[in-house]
Amino acid sequence: MEDFALEHINDSRRTILITAQLADSWNDRIKEIAPDFTIELRPWAKAADIPDELWENVEILFTLGAFPTPEQAPNLRWVQLYSAGANQAFTGPLAKSNAIITTASGVHAVNIAEYVLTTMLTWFHRYHQFGSWKQEGHWPDEHGRDLFMPEELRGKTLNVVGYGSIGREVARLAKSFGMRIIAMEQRPDHRDRGFLFPDIGDPEGKLPDHYYTKDQFQQALAESDVVVAAVPLTPDTRGMFDATAFHAMKESALFINIARGDVCKEPDLIKALKEKEIAGAALDVFADEPLPDSSPFFGLPNVIMSPHISGMTPHYNDRVAMIFTENLRRYLKGEPLYNTVNKERGY
């Protein structure tokens, strides 16, 4: 959490504008926490749908993508994003805003971590091959059954590139399978300072067997059996998984990307997969989405793919509402907010 200082506006028209779709119970909770505010509920409204006279009174905005210009909302003090990503903070109207911006970081930790474990188990226990043989209408003969010989996760080295809320929950689950964990983390104390859900992740940063820095990236890749891209998309991380990175990995390595498609140079990854520089990949995100039918990824047998669905969960709205209401409570007390975006850092 970062230093937080705020001068509230003395105006009886102080307004919280919510364009997210929340259950009535959460809207009632918001009214209880902030009884001095007018609560405006405009589910899924776009910025153009909000009249100027309403924007003028908005002090707090909880939204996925309805962003006013600074001139439209002169009293805007805090924007809570509905998304865990902070890309919106660096483009469009938000880039010019002086408002505090917070994200829903942590909301995806459980479901995306389970997705990562699913892809690892699918890969190493050969489930991706069972379907192909099922379509053939028979199993391989006795000499071919070695194709199904599984590998165990126990003892393998998992490299979590980006030790945020998702990466920490991946590490927690993987540790229970007996995996060795290494992680890239820039903060010297390795603590998670974002919003914490109970019994999730690694708040104190104690699970990794070893931490490494950006300068040690290639060395860490060389000792990894599984590499999970879990970094935010920033100028520093864009294209970080390139030909050099894939060349540094083991030929038996599995690369998993649940970050953003642009953290990977896809032509380099396709080449590495075709030439067996790495064994395989599990990809949920791509540079172009939806992925074009012409994409070479569709024809690669050593790729497990999904259409950017790892972040989907029926619990999303409740979890993001928990983050917002806790931040609202802290905002009204003048306390530091969780998941504050640092524009200099890029997330």
Score class of each variant (00 low, 15 high):
V116S: 01
L117H: 01
T118G: 15
T118I: 01
T118L: 12
L121W: 00
L121T: 04
L121F: 02
L121S: 07
L121I: 14
W123D: 11
F124M: 03
H125S: 11
R126P: 04
Y127R: 09
Y127K: 03
Y127V: 09
H128E: 14
F130V: 15
F130L: 15
G131V: 13
G131Y: 13
S132P: 00
S132H: 10
S132L: 10
W133F: 15
K134I: 13
Q135N: 15
Q135W: 03
Q135P: 00
E136S: 08
E136M: 12
G137Y: 01
H138L: 06
W139C: 03
P140H: 02
P140E: 12
P140G: 10
D141N: 15
D141H: 06
E142N: 07
E142R: 11
H143G: 14
H143D: 15
G144R: 04
G144T: 03
R145N: 06
D146N: 06
L147E: 13
L147D: 02
L147I: 14
F148G: 02
F148L: 12
M149S: 12
M149Q: 13
E151Q: 11
E151K: 05
E152F: 12
L153P: 02
R154H: 13
R154M: 04
R154Y: 01
G155R: 03
K156W: 00
K156E: 01
K156A: 02
K156Y: 00
L158D: 06
V160C: 07
V161A: 14
G162L: 05
G162D: 00
Y163K: 04
Y163D: 05
Y163P: 01
G164R: 04
S165L: 10
I166D: 09
R168T: 08
V170E: 04
A171L: 07
L173F: 05
L173I: 14
A174I: 03
K175M: 08
S176T: 14
G178Y: 08
G178A: 10
G178S: 09
I181F: 05
I181E: 05
I182W: 02
A183S: 13
M184V: 10
M184H: 10
E185W: 01
Q186M: 13
Q186A: 15
Q186D: 15
R187S: 15
P188Y: 09
P188I: 10
D189K: 04
D189V: 12
D189M: 11
H190L: 12
H190A: 14
H190S: 09
R191C: 14
D192V: 08
